Computed example of a mutant assay.
Amino acid sequence: MNKYTPFSAVFKQVLTPEDIQTLIGKTKGYEDTGNKMTVGLLLDYFVQACYQKWNGFRESTRLGPSYGLPKVHYSTLSGKAGEVPYEIFKRMFQLLVKKCNRQTRRHLNLPKDLLLIDSTTITAANSRMSWAPYKKFRAGLKLHVAVSHGQRSPVNVEESIARRNDAPFGEVLADPDYILVQDRAYGKISRLDQYVLHGQSFVIRLKDNLHLVKPRKLHRPAEGDTTIVRDITCYIGQGKCQSAHRHRVVEFKNDRGEVVRVVTDLRNESAHVIAEIYKARWQIEVFFRWIKQHLNVPCLFGTTENAVYSQLFVALAVYVVLRRVYDEIHPNVPVFVQLTFWEFMQHWRIFSLPLEWQVQFSLFRNKGILEIISIP
């Protein structure tokens, strides 16, 4: 590999100009009529702004030419960002997820991968996003994200204003090919019964005030795990809100000694495994923290829905490609030069990857990125 290969060049090999034109053509009511300022150029600017952590349209247009981007005025870039429907960038993200999909190692030898679902809130001053009122002086929006535990990368994302309840998005993001792992905001009783009927596996934390009716202890061989408090089947809730089916409930102590209560449809797994599955949910919190710290997510450039959501979906797309490249190369690098995901990104950003990484990167690119990445 040429050590000066920029991330943007790899990104363009995965998401080609032909892909972009196809996605634009599928967007009703929009035609990319710009001669110089096109959707493709807007994407290039967003990718570089995310990857290089630029802090706005002004800085992007000032620094862009240094990274091979055509010179444009910041008002032109801002106007284009507000004009282009953000659904185009959302579809770009979804296409990249399909292209970067890969076989994953099963967690705890389970038959299905875990799908970790949660949301993160991004806020700004009311004056910047009046269309998304949140608190007294703040506006806000949410990204509802489903992260594959095996791939350590998002596989589906829905957007909303911050005042929207998380619970309905749990159903939207559900996927029977995975085991859902969710926090208590998603633990609606009627939804648990629906999951059982539809064959959707799940491990979901229950609210502390829910009643457990007619509990029956499950007799399982002891595993020597003292964190397990109780393993039962029961009805959940009372009166009209009571579940129609008996559900398995496992109670265990977390690292702080607090009792956590989760409900699951997994009957053949031990209580220890159920507890470990729920603890894996922490990975999505790490993901949220990572993109906010390293991909410029809290620094919103625009003020319109199109500009804001477009920037966020591009940031998620950048993460997907970065993670795919890292996971492809990392296992083949000697132990003494291994890098964390963050270190890999930092070294690549300033063209200082160790020689061993450059060699593996060359092999990766010589195979043909699009031959390694699955094409839907």
Rank of each mutant, 00 (worst) to 15 (best):
I24D: 12
R220Y: 09
I122A: 02
Q52E: 00
Y74M: 12
I291G: 00
Q182E: 11
L192I: 07
P334Y: 06
V181F: 13
R324A: 14
D177P: 11
V10L: 12
Q346W: 14
I189K: 04
I122P: 07
A307Q: 00
I284Y: 13
E343I: 15
G79I: 09
S130C: 13
R349K: 10
G140E: 02
V333M: 07
E87V: 15
L110G: 01
V72W: 03
I117S: 03
A132H: 13
K188C: 02
Y30E: 06
P17S: 09
T22C: 07
A317D: 13
V47S: 01
R323T: 07
W290Y: 10
D327I: 02
M345G: 01
D255F: 13
P133Y: 09
K112C: 08
E31G: 14
L173S: 01
V203G: 00
V157L: 10
N254G: 10
Y235C: 04
T304A: 11
V145T: 14
A167M: 13
A81E: 08
M129R: 05
A315K: 05
T5C: 03
Q358E: 11
A167S: 11
S60Y: 03
N366E: 12
G368T: 02
L218S: 01
H198T: 15
S153R: 09
L116S: 07
V145W: 15
G64T: 05
P133W: 02
S148K: 11
Y86P: 08
L114F: 12
V14K: 00
E59Y: 10
P65R: 10
T38D: 03
N296S: 02
A185M: 11
D193R: 13
I232C: 05
I122G: 05
R128F: 00
W290H: 00
G187D: 15
A125I: 07
S153T: 14
Q311G: 02
Y134A: 04
V359H: 14
F351L: 07
R184Y: 11
P133K: 02
R91C: 01
H211E: 12
F364H: 03
E356L: 00
N306A: 14
I277W: 11
A222C: 10
A315R: 01
T227D: 14
K188V: 05
G82R: 06
Q48T: 12
D193C: 03
V335H: 14
N254H: 13
S310Q: 06
G150T: 08
R349H: 04
P215H: 01
R289D: 15
R184G: 00
D175Q: 02
H144Y: 10
F137G: 06
S78V: 08
V320D: 08
I179E: 02
G302V: 09
R164S: 15
N254T: 04
